[in-house]
Simulated scan of single mutants.
Amino acid sequence: MNPLEDYYFRINEPERSALLFLRQKIIASDTENITETLSFGLPFFKFKKKMLCYFYFSKKHRQHYISFYHGDRLDHPLLLSEGRKKFKILLIDMEEDLPLELILELIDEVKRFVR
């Protein structure tokens, strides 16, 4: 098992399936330019080899989240900065439907800042 697979394998269901679904949708949104790497022990998604977003777990909120690079330029009421300078996070509530459309829109917005 490679380190990326190991990261997801250590997460319990149903969170694992939700994150794997998001992973697949993020990569499929731009298969030519979005890649996934393991950085700092976390799955990072990169756009043209530059940071885009990553998954992590918030101990404070007890939820997984997706963190967006250039978050300081993103303006959405569901995004939290919590003192971060360049990133904002979107908490993923496993009890609710995944906000897939919103996530993909935010990724597209971040991609415009990377270019």
Rank of each mutant, 00 (worst) to 15 (best):
M1C: 14
N2Q: 13
N2D: 15
E5N: 15
E5F: 14
Y7M: 14
Y8Q: 13
F9C: 13
R10T: 15
N12L: 15
N12A: 14
N12F: 10
N12D: 15
P14M: 10
R16H: 14
R16K: 15
S17G: 14
A18W: 11
A18F: 13
A18Y: 11
A18S: 14
L19D: 08
F21C: 11
F21D: 11
L22R: 06
L22Y: 11
Q24D: 15
A28H: 10
A28E: 12
S29W: 06
D30W: 12
T31H: 11
N33C: 04
N33S: 10
I34W: 08
T35M: 08
E36G: 05
L38H: 05
S39D: 09
S39L: 13
S39N: 11
F40W: 14
F40E: 08
L42I: 08
L42C: 05
L42F: 09
F44W: 13
F44R: 03
K46D: 02
F47Y: 15
K48I: 04
L52K: 01
C53Y: 09
Y54S: 00
F55P: 02
F55C: 01
F57G: 01
F57W: 15
F57P: 02
K59H: 12
R62H: 11
R62G: 06
Q63S: 09
Q63L: 12
Q63W: 04
Y65S: 08
S67Y: 00
S67V: 05
F68P: 02
F68D: 02
Y69M: 05
H70M: 04
G71T: 00
L74D: 01
D75G: 06
H76W: 07
L78W: 13
L79P: 01
L80Y: 07
L80N: 05
L80S: 04
S81Q: 09
S81D: 08
G83H: 03
R84K: 07
K85E: 01
K86I: 03
F87P: 00
F87K: 03
F87S: 06
I89S: 07
L90E: 00
L91H: 02
I92C: 04
I92F: 09
I92S: 02
M94V: 14
M94C: 13
E95I: 08
E95Y: 09
E95F: 06
E96M: 11
E96N: 12
E96C: 10
L98M: 11
L98R: 02
P99R: 01
L100F: 09
E101Y: 05
L102E: 06
L102P: 04
I103E: 02
L104I: 04
E105R: 11
I107F: 06
I107K: 03
D108M: 03
D108I: 01
E109M: 07
V110Q: 02
R112S: 14
R112K: 15
R112Y: 12
V114S: 07
